[in-house]
Amino acid sequence: MQTCNHPSVDLTLLEDTLAEYAGVKGSLISILQKTQEIYGYIPIDAVYRISERTGASPAKILGVATFYSQFRFQAVGKYLILLCKGTACYVNGADRILDAVSDELGIGNNETTEDGLFSLSVVACLGCCSLAPVMMINDKTYGSLTPDKARQILRDLRKEAEAQ
């Protein structure tokens, strides 16, 4: 677990969420989802604050957070690439897309580029099987990929980011 040595975070940002779910049983996953929306990941200090306010032990909260693949414990890049490796994508050559993306960005699964622009995460299935192979970048889905098409999308995004 890479939960150590993070810069301290502003825990006041959590207060509204904690107030919203105060006394609502079974809301731990929802709280964690909001936490990730706020910080981009789950900071360990937030885990302790959630523990104080909900009474769930930090061990339990981390147990829940690490169980689900949605939760991250380190900040991710500006663009989060979810690369689908569902059956239809696999059959249609998702491995070659993964190779192209990894090669283009110089990162592997669950890694972030040095410039902090891109993070790569291989996921089970995005449910866009008819457009396989597919990847999703920050909620936008790109279908019918080829290795070259995938590279071009990443280059365009990099240009877009540099322009800003």
């Binding site: 689900y68 693949s69 949605q70």
Partner: peptide, 20 residues
């Protein structure tokens, strides 16, 4: 909203997940 776990399609796992 689920949080990414295929096993939660199993009904008792889904219930555990609903309970947080």
């Amino acid at each position: 909203a689920g949080a990414g776990a295929f096993v939660c399609g199993e009904e008792t796992a889904l219930i555990e997940s609903l309970e947080g």
